[in-house]
């Protein structure tokens, strides 16, 4: 029956034969002892793995909450910047950094989402042959690019080649490089999940291909695409290397992406950590907690949007 008779196959075979024989003799008896032991063992191993995976998560969340939680209740945290506050001073807020992170994230998403979604549409709906394979391969390579390499690439282009300043927009450009592959891959998966029958049903009604994609395929995959975009956004909002290289910190509120320094939560954490004085350290934890909450909020909003546009069943 089996072509290659490996030891494992034989073992399985024997077990099966053995249990079959047992069933013959004992009828509908209790679960076999060996199987019960293996079942219990597997259960214990899985629970242990789960708990081990949970330890760092709870630990991080716990320490950030304990050490940074009180900062969020400071009256000025969400209203004031760090303007004119030295590292030994208590007070001020993180609004400059929150704003910077949101502005740069939005600028990045504005560029990366169209590029990513349209690339995915090309790959799934149109791409055939060498070009599609090349694009897909490039996306794979881009996925593996470390953030510092993306940052240095943009530095080389933006600062060294063109001689521009290190500004928020340069940060956004390097974050685009990191976000595009995430959006492409997740959107691609979601588009592939749309059954071909729906496309054919639409074609059979005399609907052109582009309209089929825009009105049938994308709406069907919409919630998945939104989730993918938000995962990508969550990834790049916590990214640090490009910010350190391309986005110098400032204690002031800054909204211009094209000139001057712009603060972000990761650079604020980095700056205050270097100071090593207690008021600054408190702000480090506060900023960390703020960043975590920001990303959490993003996910919640995304889920609501996703549910709003979800497939109706």
């Amino acid at each position: 029956m089996t072509i290659v008779d490996t030891g494992m196959d034989t073992a399985v075979q024997e077990t099966r034969d053995g249990s079959a024989r047992r069933r013959l003799t004992s009828g509908l008896g209790p679960k076999a002892a060996g199987r019960r032991v293996r079942d219990e063992l597997a259960r214990v191993v899985m629970w242990l793995a789960f708990l081990v995976a949970l330890v760092p998560l709870v630990w991080i969340l716990g320490s950030v909450l304990v050490k940074g939680g009180h900062m969020l209740f400071e009256s000025t945290w969400f209203t004031h910047s760090q303007r004119n506050i030295t590292s030994s001073d208590v007070g001020g807020g993180a609004i400059h950094a929150i704003q910077g992170t949101l502005i740069q994230g939005a600028a990045t998403a504005l560029m990366a989402v169209p590029i990513g979604v349209f690339t995915a549409i090309y790959l799934v709906e149109y791409g055939r042959g060498a070009l599609a394979r090349a694009v897909s391969f490039m996306v794979d390579i881009l996925t593996g690019v470390p953030s510092i390499v993306a940052a240095l690439f943009i530095y080389a282009v933006w600062v060294t080649t063109f001689g521009f300043q290190r500004v928020g927009f340069a940060v956004a450009l390097s974050l685009v490089l990191l976000m595009v592959p995430v959006v492409v891959r997740s959107t691609e998966e979601m588009l592939k999940l749309v059954p071909n029958e729906l496309r054919e049903a639409s074609y059979a009604l005399g609907v052109p291909k582009w309209k089929t994609i825009a009105r049938i395929v994308i709406p069907t995959a919409f919630s998945g695409i939104v989730t993918g975009v938000l995962l990508g956004l969550a990834r790049i909002m916590g990214e640090t290397a490009p910010l350190l290289i391309l986005g110098p910190y400032t204690k002031n509120i800054a909204t211009n992406l094209f000139s001057g320094n712009m603060a972000t939560l990761p650079t604020m954490i980095n700056q205050d950590r270097v100071e090593a004085l207690q008021p600054a350290l408190d702000r480090v934890w506060g900023a960390a907690l703020t960043l975590i909450l920001l990303i959490l909020l993003l996910n919640v909003v995304g889920r609501i949007i996703a549910r709003f546009g979800a497939v109706r069943t």
Binding site: P195, E197, L198, E200, A201, S202, A204, I216, P219, T220, F222, V311, R312, T313
Partner: peptide
Amino acid sequence: MVFQRPNPFPT
């Protein structure tokens, strides 16, 4: 055209 499996648009 009508297909083998019913395929209403799910959205």
